[in-house]
Design a protein around this nucleic acid. Sequence first.
DNA 1: CGCGGCAATATTGTCTGACAATCATGAGGG
DNA 2: CCCTCATGATTGTCAGACAATATTGCCGCG
Lengths: 227, 227
Amino acid sequence: MPKADELGISPTEQPSSVERAAAWLREKIYDGDFTPGQRLIEAELTETISVGRSTIREAIRRLTAEGLIETRHHYGARVRRFTRSDVSSIYQVRQVIEGLAVRLTTHQLNDDGKATLQKLSEDLSGAKTKGDIKRYIELNGDLHDFFVEASGNPFISEIAARLNTRILRLQFKQVFDLDNIAISHADHRAILNAVLGGDAYDAELLMRAHIGRSQQQIESYDDSFFQ
Amino acid sequence: MPKADELGISPTEQPSSVERAAAWLREKIYDGDFTPGQRLIEAELTETISVGRSTIREAIRRLTAEGLIETRHHYGARVRRFTRSDVSSIYQVRQVIEGLAVRLTTHQLNDDGKATLQKLSEDLSGAKTKGDIKRYIELNGDLHDFFVEASGNPFISEIAARLNTRILRLQFKQVFDLDNIAISHADHRAILNAVLGGDAYDAELLMRAHIGRSQQQIESYDDSFFQ
DNA sequence: CGCGGCAATATTGTCTGACAATCATGAGGG
DNA sequence: CCCTCATGATTGTCAGACAATATTGCCGCG
């Protein structure tokens, strides 16, 4: 009796129809082709991407679980809308979750991780001095993702993915100017120093404060950003 | 053109087949009729509770999203298993999430909330002096749930539900003795004092430490509790 | 003229049946 | 004893159908 492999990695793992449908939908939402509040009709989607209705329904359910879509009984699915209050709640959670992530990361950072951080640090400085705002926002995302992944806690990854997913649309709109980058960059340098110096608790507090500042900035935005 | 009501409460809202199936499955898992690692065959379930396969599949997907079930492509659904590492990760997250919850609650506690807490506090003391361990565990759950709900942050509720759901089986097994209760009760009293006294930050730190102690206790358990 | 109730319609929820895809298992060969 | 391959069981996806229900526009009433 050969025992089943418990390694968790399946041999082939090629994307199923549902995964493709879900990816397609996710892309459309990220790109803004489906806007918040817009209704998603199963019949339309089935013929647009040529899959059965069960496939579409399953894809919709997955995105619902991810928090990108909301559904109502016998009415259907809509692209999720985020209120000001939602955004505040999300940032409150991000503060403590990413704070935890950076603390855990500090405790178990290996040489590879250190090298990655050093490089990220240099890239951030480079983007700042060149005034490349778009690039800076991108690297900022990479930095946050790094801590989340390097924390080694799968639940942190899961939660962060959900929160970031939910807010990605807003992050995209985030209007960083050079002043904001200067503040943000000071935060990043302090956090990186604490992490590389092994001051886990400091790093946690700094991350919380950093995300708190992002929150204040976003909360100061005009209503048109929230709709 | 009468505008659609955006109140979020649907008129009838009677449980659908899927909801009933999901509830049935959830109950079975909680009660231990389906044990961790056990396989869930769609065909069997279909005839057991007399619903179509689509309904069962949808119910399975919901419980998967809740974290009670794990699925593998073309192999199917199994009741989820939690490793020692999972439990540690969950408690790490619980520390910061419930810490945040208690801090937010402190900031916006009204008279009703205060009364509820006072009552919980008395009941906890009563259960402790009477040595009613089962009752104490129950009230302990109520206390944690109270903070999560009273925080007013829906994402905290969502995350806590997922974590508690996932670990409920383990909590159930948790072997509290009177010594543990004494320690736990001291924590609870301190937390309640901080909350009622308006010391939000103290309350947060105390909650983190409290959950940390629970974590240590659970992590000291024998392997037989995990598998 | 505005408001509330009612029927028509569109869409979802669920069922049945079917077939292909694929994983785990067990037999057979090296 | 280990590796390879065919087999069977189960899931993934599709199509078609019908019932349930929420939304919408219409109608009559105040």
